[in-house]
Simulated assay, not measured.
Amino acid sequence: MDPNEGTDDPDRLARILLATALAVVAAVWLRSGKRVRGALAGVGALAVGYGLATESGDLMETIDIEGSEERAGLSEEDGGLRCAACGEPIVPGQRRGPNENHEIVHEDCE
């Protein structure tokens, strides 16, 4: 990864500045004897830096939002749940639960 890659992104630049500031504050607090504050600031700097180094392009692709909705039985056209066994909509108040494949089904369809 090129060190200058993505510095045009204002969000990324702000996180770089935050990680740098936390590292400086951690060093100052550790030198002045405030160990707990310095350690916490150092951990924060490491966390922000690690997040910068390992970030992927798109968060939505990383956590797979569309795929998780399909696995949960959510249907976009009616905005509700559908039974994985029979395909009928599950209305509010109707008993439901996961089957052996961890899909949402009617209690009667189990």
Rank of each mutant, 00 (worst) to 15 (best):
M1V: 10
P3N: 03
E5W: 04
E5N: 08
E5Q: 12
E5K: 05
T7D: 15
D8C: 10
D8E: 15
D9I: 09
P10N: 04
D11A: 11
A14V: 08
R15A: 10
I16L: 13
L17A: 14
L17P: 01
L18C: 13
A23M: 03
A23S: 08
V24F: 06
V24Y: 04
V25W: 11
V25K: 11
A26Q: 00
A27V: 10
A27E: 05
V28W: 02
V28R: 04
W29T: 06
L30T: 12
S32K: 10
S32T: 07
G33R: 07
G33V: 09
G33W: 04
K34T: 07
K34C: 04
R35P: 05
V36E: 10
V36W: 06
R37Y: 08
R37N: 06
G38Y: 02
A39S: 15
L40Y: 02
A41I: 02
G42S: 04
A45D: 00
A47K: 03
G57L: 11
D58N: 15
D58H: 14
L59A: 11
M60I: 13
M60K: 15
E61V: 12
T62A: 14
I63F: 02
D64L: 08
E66V: 11
E66M: 11
E69I: 06
E69M: 15
E69W: 13
R71P: 01
A72N: 10
L74G: 05
G79C: 08
G80I: 03
L81I: 08
R82P: 00
R82L: 09
C83A: 10
A84G: 05
C86K: 09
I90P: 01
V91W: 11
G93V: 07
G93H: 08
G93D: 04
Q94V: 06
Q94P: 01
R96V: 02
G97L: 01
G97D: 01
P98L: 14
N99V: 02
N99K: 05
N101E: 15
H102G: 05
E103A: 09
E103N: 09
E103P: 00
V105L: 04
H106C: 00
E107V: 08
D108K: 15
E110K: 10
E110W: 04
